[in-house]
Design a protein around this nucleic acid. Structure first.
Lengths: 145, 145
DNA sequence: TATATTTATTGTCAAATGATAACTAAAAGG
DNA sequence: CCTTTTAGTTATCATTTGACAATAAATATA
């Protein structure tokens, strides 16, 4: 297979995955958070605590706008702020209990949908699937890591 | 591996792919189209001609808002409209030459980035990669198709 | 210490997006 | 025909998001 065909396959794959992940997390609409706020919560979930600068980098948002969205999330009691003791300019954000609960709801629903999708797979197929995920991660998505 | 661990792996995988695809298509910022308009163009690219209703479904946009964005794309000369002869209520949209050119620029840049990422892979690894993409598509993303 | 840099916040404005009502034209179905 | 349904458009308004200037506070550095 040529590189260009592989690229087309990769594009189609990406589109499919995007569609599926959108479907799996459609539960977010029930929650009182905007798409950007959800992305921030998602990022917090995997790497708390996080500073506004880190969020801005990762979510691709300017620092002022990140600050604004964090304020809104705090007003909704979905995250908490604390000052870093070693550098008191830095603010450390983490999910609040309510924020955790929200993410548990959304992720729980997603996991349910995911497991329906893989319900018919045999143990062998599950292992193949896991290896396929690992391979793409290692060879393409995170080649350095 | 348990189902819940596989789900976590799937979530991490999705996050990585999202990040990479965002990086690969960062050339869009150079173009005079909004994110939603780009998604419409992307959809047109793979399945033209398309009707406003189809776009609304696929891009998850209301029909009135779809109509508005299509008008803007037409004003930018990025797509063309024609009435369906068999049902004159239906409007058929396709990329204009300018729209094609835009997508060629963006996709060309993405392909270049992709090929840099896979540049070091051996022929065997490329084949493994291709099979991994196919496997995930078939077993998880498009189980019915 | 004095200055520069980093981190974060606030405020403001423009643009993009979402939601909804009102309307036209064509087709479908009685 | 006449009514209903479908596809699309236009207009309007609220909310979200993006961009940028100005500021404060803590740290780093000369």
């Amino acid at each position: 297979m040529e590189h260009s065909m592989l690229f087309e396959k990769f594009v189609a794959f990406t589109a499919s995955l995007h569609e599926v992940s959108h479907e799996l997390t459609r539960g977010v609409k029930q929650e009182d958070v905007t798409p950007i706020q959800y992305r921030i919560l998602e990022y917090m979930m995997v790497s708390q605590p996080v500073t506004p600068s880190e969020i801005a980098d990762c979510v691709d948002l300017s620092l002022p706008n990140t600050s604004r969205e964090l304020r809104k999330l705090m007003e909704k009691n979905l995250c908490e702020k604390a000052t870093d003791d070693t550098d008191r300019r830095r603010q450390l954000f983490r999910l609040s209990p309510d924020g955790q609960a929200l993410m548990n709801r959304v992720m729980g629903q997603a996991q349910q949908g995911f497991q329906q999708r893989i319900a018919d797979l045999t143990a062998d197929e599950l292992q193949e699937l896991e290896q396929a995920l690992t391979l793409i991660q290692r060879k393409v998505l995170r080649p350095k890591a």
